[in-house]
């Protein structure tokens, strides 16, 4: 007899929600990676870093993160009823 009862498999909707939550957890990691990327860009030999390009890149990444977060949090919402129950399994 197992000590705790966990749902082993979930129906399609809960499964989707679970994966969206995974995406929400991974989003800051992706963001950190993209934000850290300019560190690797070597400045041009003659006239230093191209600030305009780097700036535009950063602001585009920033906007992308905001849109992604908006889509995810819309779908995930707060805590729907029942979310706690299906959190048990994975």
């Amino acid at each position: 007899m197992p000590a705790t009862r966990r749902a082993v498999f979930l129906e399609r909707r809960s499964y989707r929600r679970r994966r969206l939550a995974d995406a929400a957890r991974l989003l800051p990691v992706l963001g950190l990676f993209l934000i850290g990327l300019p560190v690797l860009w070597a400045p041009a030999e003659d006239r230093g870093r191209d600030m305009a390009t780097t700036g535009i890149y950063l602001f585009v990444v920033w906007l992308g993160l905001i849109v992604a977060a908006a889509v995810l949090s819309r779908t995930l919402g707060g805590d729907e009823p029942g979310a706690a129950a299906d959190r048990a399994g994975d």
Binding site: A21, A24, R25, L27, P28, V29, G31, L32, I35, M51, T54, G55, L58, W62, L65, I66, A68, A69, L72, S73, L76
Partner: peptide, 19 residues
Amino acid sequence: LEFVTIYLGPTLVFVGWWL
């Protein structure tokens, strides 16, 4: 551009709110 780090850090925390 160093000033954006002051706002990118919180952005990361907020987009990772679920975590």
